[in-house]
Design a protein around this nucleic acid. Sequence first.
DNA 1: TTCATTTTGTGATTTTCGTCACATATAAGT
DNA 2: ACTTATATGTGACGAAAATCACAAAATGAA
Lengths: 192, 192
Amino acid sequence: MNLENEISLRQTLDRFNVLSDVEFSEFLKVCEYREFSKKDYLLKSGNYNHGIYFIISGVVGLFELIDGEKMYQNFFLENEFANELKSLSTQTPSTKNLIALTTINSFYLNRKKLLELYDKSASFERLGRKLLEHILNGQNEISYVLQSLKPEKRYEYLEIERPELLKSIPLTYLASYLGLARETLSRIRARK
Amino acid sequence: MNLENEISLRQTLDRFNVLSDVEFSEFLKVCEYREFSKKDYLLKSGNYNHGIYFIISGVVGLFELIDGEKMYQNFFLENEFANELKSLSTQTPSTKNLIALTTINSFYLNRKKLLELYDKSASFERLGRKLLEHILNGQNEISYVLQSLKPEKRYEYLEIERPELLKSIPLTYLASYLGLARETLSRIRARK
DNA sequence: TTCATTTTGTGATTTTCGTCACATATAAGT
DNA sequence: ACTTATATGTGACGAAAATCACAAAATGAA
């Protein structure tokens, strides 16, 4: 069970191809197992952000309150790193929130401990850099969708590129993610 | 003149607070001075991407051809690093283009040489990581604009947060950047 | 200076999407 | 099982933006 979780993490990190066995066990030492119930906040706006979460199971949403409405900006699924990097890197209070959309099993990675790892070996720093590259590529993609695609095509983007989101996340949240009115997305789906 | 350019670079890098004097002169060794005329391509879609450019002076645009139209996705001004990180990090042919919108003076930073630097000292890797964080924060911001702001507010975002773009870049290009029809942006500006 | 190219402005028209209102369905909590 | 809270569907309507068409202005090149 616990071992299984570590294997998930290992496999995810292996895709970046940087950590040796020894380094991985070093890495594991900074991982704290944490659980959350649905609607729990992993990060609340106004608070400082001290780390990131590796999602073992469940779905986490990143949102910002705008005119009293939750605008979802990202979703993190199994085997992804839930994060809000702006407040993490600048160490200023977060304007955004991370919320558990389901029950969550996760590993928490404390920022300070990660920075200490960075000092120990360049491999960890490299892992951090590669993870950032990965996140940035994802962010570029969603920008492209918002900039260039009409509502119907945005929905198709989800169908093709991120079908897991359609399955696990309420339409209402996806609408804000795609920059559309809830009703518009509902109608797009209706005519399919 | 040449010294002046190096000072610009130094000041820009100093904001990340990682390189010593010695490391900076090491860094300078991988910088190749390059000039471009207006309309030259720094990167052409279909080609491999072998590095990034520090812009000493001028403006570079990042665009993608969609239905035969240039969709501008970013602009790089003086003292910024013009880049297309997806093709650079994955080493696949670029789908995007970097084009000189004015005469350009730049330093070219070759990817391989940068990776070699990364191996030499963790400071360089850290610089790379911090630069990525910086780029990612910018990318998050433009996503927010596209997702949450109506056309008029998008224009105001430029007025307030990026006035240099309004001064130096044709309205037509800015329209695609903001995900709007050219005419819409022209009318927004007219009623101000 | 002249000609071609690029960029911007502006009206008329069409389309799409957002908004409002309310019904229904589904899930969650006691 | 009952009640409340969340989420979804759908029609009517209006506002806003896209599209089309063309003129004017600005920029660049020969």
